[in-house]
């Protein structure tokens, strides 16, 4: 029998925003408080997973039309690129740089190449989890 998941769907719409926000927070805060690319990425995929649970593959695919494998590759490129940037300066691979830049309006901006690296991690984790879930879920 077909059932409607109205309650679930409504709740999901509400909660989803919360989760994504939290995951972004956790991703950016990772260098200072617990969290980071892994957890952030995993949580984001958790959010998408919830979406998938509440709705269905087709709907989610229209909302988020990503090729997750490409996302994985992109994330890897990010991570490698961050490391390989050091090659240009003839410093050891993966040497990070950081510094504070003064931006007129925003004030002090703390920049760290490790964030870029973590972004790569984030992308890979989201890409991997989602592509796994999508491939398995889509298998008849």
């Amino acid at each position: 029998m077909k059932t409607s998941d109205l309650i679930l769907q409504t709740a999901t719409k509400l909660i989803l925003f919360l989760i994504v926000l939290f995951s972004v927070y956790i991703f950016f805060a990772g260098h200072y408080t617990p969290g980071g690319g892994f957890v952030g990425g995993l949580l984001t995929s958790g959010a998408i997973l919830l979406l998938l649970l509440a709705f269905d593959m087709k709907t989610v695919q229209t909302i988020l039309p990503f090729n997750y494998l490409y996302m994985v590759a992109l994330g890897l490129l990010f991570a490698i690129g961050t490391g390989a940037g050091a090659l240009l300066f003839n410093t050891p691979f993966l040497t990070h740089a950081f510094g504070d830049i003064h931006v007129p309006v925003l004030g002090e901006l703390h920049l760290h190449t490790a964030t870029l690296f973590d972004l790569g991690v984030y992308l890979v984790v989201v890409g991997v989890t989602m592509s796994i879930i999508q491939t398995i879920g889509g298998d008849e």
Partner: peptide, 22 residues
């Protein structure tokens, strides 16, 4: 968050056998 996701997954599994519909 996760406990919720887990519960949703389990209950969908119980109800439909498949947790993500196409």
């Amino acid at each position: 968050i996760l406990a919720f996701i887990g519960t949703v997954a389990f209950s969908k599994y119980l109800e439909k056998g498949v947790i993500i519909e196409n």
